[in-house]
Design a protein around this nucleic acid. Structure first.
Lengths: 346, 346
DNA sequence: GTGAAAGCGCTAACAA
DNA sequence: TTGTTAGCGCTTTCAC
């Protein structure tokens, strides 16, 4: 049923190549992993044979001896959230470009699951990217001692991180609202456990003070579209005419609820989201939001991690220091969901 | 800096446990992997020690001897497409429930990348799920001989598959349009390389014939929101009053374009999508679409695969035969994008 | 029921 | 430059 040559069912190993080319297995190993340390001619012969025999290196065996898996784990807190899709897209892209494997783990918003994953993953991957960790800075730092880590949207001391500069976006958003005549802004908060949530709120308070804008806050709200309904009701009850929501999911949910209640956006209420996820441009009305380079954050995180693992030339690694932070700029994308303040406060 | 006991920097191995408990490494191995084949008392002692020492099995070493990685690869053709998010969510869920690892691979719509990934993955995973493969049935079957495979929305002979019954959904969609007075339906085709695309078109032709509806087809269109603009223009040019789009991405893009052009949906044109992805409910107007159990498809695919790998009790494995197909029902979700046919054909 | 020993496929000293 | 020799941590015969 198969061709006349050797057994088809067994995978080709470096031994097979060694036999075929008349060299020692170690030479084959070198020819494949450190080509410069082998006579050019034999190197060619070996690689040729490898190709002909259909050799595929056994990554398990390789990992066992070298201690390196050429895989990295990417932990997300909720695989359901479109924000992470973009992150994953970025990490995936950068990893496959480097020939590495991505292990995707959903921690489901649970710190225990995160700890479990991080411990389990230690042997399976050479490093990990934490997006939206639910752990304390100290815990993260502790794990980082054993496993190279890069965190997104967190700033644990000593651990390299990628920050999306939403505070900068908040400033633009408030200025935009001010330019439309708004003097009151309501912050629709996300989960208390979110680092970004506090960061955005503080940025809002700071900017508002400077621009003479009054701010208030409602929440916390879970980061789902469905949470938007309650948020919208609360915003209306608070008499708000301009809201900045923790993220686009909540903002989109608010839009839907406001429409149901006959409250016009932006005529009666302006809504600003955060992140510019898939859907923010085609919801109704289209959402003004802080566009974050989410995919880029994923790519940068991987580049930093690969840099730390010496798997990337130094000049391709972002950030000056190994434990430094890289901040990616955000910009406001104005769409239909924001408009002039109503003539008189309601 | 660390506690007084042994070296902190090295990972705990079964040898350490063996030393600590005074048994042989092989006994530790058994106690951990095949607990029934060990004296209950010593088994307890060993597991206790393992816990105390913080033992984490080295999956590489385990894989090397056992030949099993307890990981599965999930290949998607475009990680950008929200359809796959739901699939990934399903696979991730089912895998982590079983304590397995998910390797996520984006083949970027390329058959070569898929082949490369499939070969590379062979050693890293015990099996793979192909969602939207770009390979031929024969190629898939060939890979399936070496690596346990489950395919989604394909039907290569001999390879277990999970099918989302969009033909059934097409029937409901056409009946819905007929009930609104439409007698002409335009199919807005997806990519030629898509198996589902042909399947949906054929189902449409069949149903239309039975119900006395005229059908036409435009396309192919790439499965992106951005493709929807050209599709909408073509549909308008064709004088269509009711369209069924290959998927929601195209349908949402059409909605946007029609609105730009001042063509009212559903008054001037009814649009039906397919899949019910994230966003279909909050686009403008909300999209009537065939709701597919996408996440469930992912879960079912993993269960079938784990079943084939003997990693799941037989009674939890869907489908009668190892190489059978499981079809998941679809249903039509009617929202604002469909309405009565215009009084007279335009 | 438990231990000794071999070896999975590969890499990394160390010699030659 | 190449071959020899040891393992990496674990599972798995095969004895005992």
């Amino acid at each position: 049923m198969s061709s006349a040559d050797t057994d088809t069912s067994r995978r080709v190993t470096i031994r097979d190549i060694a036999d075929a080319t008349g060299v020692a297995p170690s030479t084959v190993s070198r020819a494949l992993s450190l080509p410069d340390r082998v006579n050019h001619a034999t190197q060619q012969r070996i690689q040729q044979a490898a190709r002909e025999l259909g050799y595929v290196p056994n990554s398990q065996a390789r990992a066992l001896t070298s201690g390196r898996t050429r895989a990295v784990a990417v932990l997300v807190s909720d695989i359901t959230n479109p924000f992470y899709f973009d992150v994953i897209r970025g990490t995936q892209h950068q990893l496959s470009a480097a020939g590495w494997t991505q292990l995707l783990v959903d921690t489901e918003e649970s710190a225990e699951a995160e700890v479990a994953a991080l411990s389990a993953v230690a042997g399976k991957a050479d490093g990990a990217v934490l997006t939206a960790s639910r752990l304390s800075d100290a815990q993260i730092a502790r794990f980082a001692e054993r496993t190279p880590l890069v965190v997104v949207n967190r700033r644990p001391p000593g651990v390299p991180s990628v920050l999306i500069d939403t505070p900068g976006g908040v400033e633009q958003a408030v200025q935009h609202l001010v330019s439309l005549g708004h003097r009151d802004v309501l912050y629709v908060a996300g989960p208390d456990s979110s680092w970004s949530n506090e960061r955005r709120w503080r940025a809002l308070v700071r900017v508002a003070k400077r621009l003479g804008v009054r701010v208030a806050r409602i929440g916390p709200h879970a980061p789902f579209v469905d949470s938007g309904a309650a948020a919208a009701d609360a915003a209306v009850h608070a008499g708000a005419t301009a809201c900045i929501a923790f993220n686009d999911l909540i903002a989109i949910g608010m839009l839907t609820r406001l429409r149901e209640r006959g409250i016009r956006v932006p005529e009666d209420m302006s809504v600003v989201g955060c992140d510019d996820i898939f859907g923010a441009d085609f919801c109704n009305p289209p959402l003004t939001t802080m566009t974050s380079p989410i995919e880029r954050a994923g790519r940068v995180a991987i580049r930093m991690l690969l840099g730390r693992l010496d798997a990337l030339p130094a000049d391709e690694v972002p950030g000056e220091h190994a434990s430094g932070a890289v901040a990616l700029p955000t910009h406001l994308t104005v769409r239909g969901s924001t408009g002039p303040a109503p003539a008189r406060p309601r």
